[in-house]
């Protein structure tokens, strides 16, 4: 038994050390940095000067940061409702015994295997383009006027729709795996008792998917908070407030944008800490609100 313990330690220690060095150390360092005035991320500690909560005061006082948080909140709420609803709908349809299930499943998942850069370019150039984009071509064929899809007022929503399109397949697969775990007997019994499909969905499928829904909300939250590339693709050349999100704000603050020489690693760290707190808060709230341990099947 003693030998076994030593062996277990030998296997576990490298992993623990790696975790401590590559995860815990940067986390603690970022937290500490957020209370100091620091220009560059790797500046020597001797050049740091204590700044109290000024970094937090700076970012919370910034209208650009507040806008980025608002954008992130909108992506989480509106994008989340849309993505999870549509993916759940597709999952239910694909597990209902329709023909060509494998084809549809692969087709809906396909955007996930395409590079996000290619996806964003396709949406910007071929769907939203004012002159030859698909949407305006359809509108013009219907005798309607073209819309400035990527104008200041519409750009955020255009980006969100494009992002949701790519994300649906991923969440759909998770829902499908959850639905396929539910015993068929339950549906057969419900059918014999006279329950229609909608009742079966609301009384059996949905309650038994609570664990999966919890997982998906957590994944979506992480997905939203790390939303970087789509924002960058929809604001070419330099960051625009319409599509800015906190990680882009963090990046610009820490590294400076196009032709910007100002860097503020301390404020960047403060943004990172606030995002970490949000992730933790979402995780705890979802765990508290969505209970999945009261049903067994």
């Amino acid at each position: 038994m003693k030998k076994n313990r030593a062996l277990i330690l030998c296997f576990v220690l490298p992993c623990v050390f790696s975790l401590l060095i590559m995860f815990l150390y940067p986390t603690i360092r970022t937290f500490v940095m957020s209370f100091f005035k620091i220009e560059g991320i790797t500046d020597d500690v001797s050049t740091w000067s204590f700044y109290g909560v000024e970094n937090y005061a700076k970012i919370f006082g910034s209208s650009t940061y507040r806008k980025s948080m608002l954008n992130m909140g909108s992506i989480w709420l509106f994008g989340g409702v849309l993505t999870l609803s549509v993916s759940l709908l597709f999952a239910v349809i694909l597990t209902s015994g329709i023909r060509f299930k494998k084809f549809f499943r692969a087709a809906i998942y396909l955007p996930n295997v395409i590079s996000a850069v290619a996806m964003a370019t396709m949406w910007i150039q071929y769907i939203y383009n004012q002159d030859y984009g698909m949407l305006n071509t359809i509108l013009k064929k219907l005798g309607l006027e073209g819309v400035r899809w990527l104008g200041a007022d519409m750009k955020f929503w255009a980006m969100l729709v494009a992002f949701v399109f790519g994300a649906v397949g991923y969440y759909m697969l998770i829902f499908i795996s959850g639905i396929e775990r539910i015993p068929q007997d339950l549906y057969e019994a419900a059918t014999i008792d006279g329950a229609n499909k909608i009742q079966q969905f609301s009384q059996i499928t949905l309650p038994l998917l609570r664990g999966i829904i919890k997982t998906n909300i957590t994944f979506w939250s992480v997905h939203t908070i790390t939303f970087f590339l789509w924002s960058k693709m929809f604001s070419p050349v330099d960051t625009e407030a319409t599509t800015i999100v906190p990680v882009v704000y963090l990046y610009d603050t820490a590294f400076g944008g196009k032709a910007t020489i100002t860097r503020d690693a301390g404020a960047g760290a403060a943004v990172g800490v606030t995002l970490a707190v949000i992730v933790l808060a979402v995780y705890f709230i979802v765990n508290k609100v969505v209970k999945d341990d009261d049903l067994e099947f």
Binding site: T64, G151, D238, E240
Partner: peptide, 19 residues
């Protein structure tokens, strides 16, 4: 760009001016 924090918001407002 000397206000690195607000330059993204300046850009947004100026785009609206041209719109």
């Amino acid at each position: 760009n000397d206000n690195a924090d607000l330059k993204a918001s300046f850009k947004d407002t100026i785009i609206r001016l041209f719109e």
